Computed example of a mutant assay.
Amino acid sequence: MEDQDDRIRRRAHEIWKQEGSPEGREYSHWLRARAEIREEDANTITQDLYRVAQLNRSF
């Protein structure tokens, strides 16, 4: 599994490139990337919990 900091770093770099590679926005890009990765992770956990609940109902 990929380290969360690596995922954030990669996403921050993507954001930086999308914005035209501006200087001095590293922290802003990191915060935005971190928020996006956390949201992705939360959605994955929610989906997993939903699947487990569905499995439990079938028993």
Rank of each mutant, 00 (worst) to 15 (best):
E40P: 07
I15T: 09
R11F: 05
S58E: 11
A53P: 02
I37V: 15
R11I: 10
L55H: 15
E23K: 04
Q4T: 09
R9E: 01
I8K: 00
A12G: 02
E2K: 11
D3P: 09
R10A: 04
N43C: 11
M1L: 15
E19R: 12
A53M: 06
E2I: 12
A35K: 07
E2T: 13
Y27P: 00
D5R: 10
K17F: 06
A42H: 06
R32C: 01
Q47V: 11
R57Q: 10
Q54V: 14
F59W: 08
R10I: 02
Q47K: 11
A42F: 09
L55I: 13
R10S: 08
S28Y: 04
I15Q: 05
E2N: 11
P22A: 01
I37F: 11
R51D: 13
Y27A: 03
I8L: 00
I45S: 10
D41C: 13
S58H: 15
R25I: 07
G20Q: 04
I37A: 08
L49Y: 07
I37R: 15
W30K: 03
E14Q: 14
F59N: 10
R9F: 02
A33Q: 07
L55P: 13
I15Y: 02
R51E: 15
T46P: 05
Y27Q: 07
D48F: 05
E40M: 05
D3W: 04
Q4G: 12
I45H: 14
R38H: 11
D3F: 00
E14M: 13
R38T: 13
A35M: 07
V52K: 14
E2V: 12
Q54I: 10
R7M: 05
M1Q: 09
I45K: 14
R32V: 07
R25Y: 03
E36T: 07
I45R: 12
F59Y: 12
G24W: 04
A35C: 12
I15A: 00
Q18M: 02
E36P: 07
L31C: 02
L55T: 13
D6T: 08
R10Y: 12
T46F: 12
G24L: 02
Q47G: 12
Y27L: 00
R11M: 03
N56R: 15
S58F: 12
Q4F: 05
R7K: 07
A53R: 14
R10M: 06
L49W: 11
W30T: 00
N56W: 14
L31A: 07
H13W: 14
A42S: 10
E26T: 02
R7Q: 00
R10H: 01
H13Y: 05
Y27D: 01
H13P: 08
E2Q: 15
W30A: 00
W16V: 01
R11Y: 02
W16H: 13
A53G: 11
I8T: 00
I8G: 03
N56I: 12
P22C: 00
L55M: 14
H29R: 03
E14I: 09
A12C: 05
N56T: 14
Q4I: 09
Y27E: 00
H29W: 00
R11S: 01
S28Q: 03
S28R: 09
Y50S: 09
I15G: 01
H13S: 05
Q18E: 09
N43M: 15
E19M: 07
R25G: 04
R51N: 15
Y50V: 09
R25T: 04
D48H: 15
R32Y: 02
I45F: 06
A35Y: 09
A12M: 02
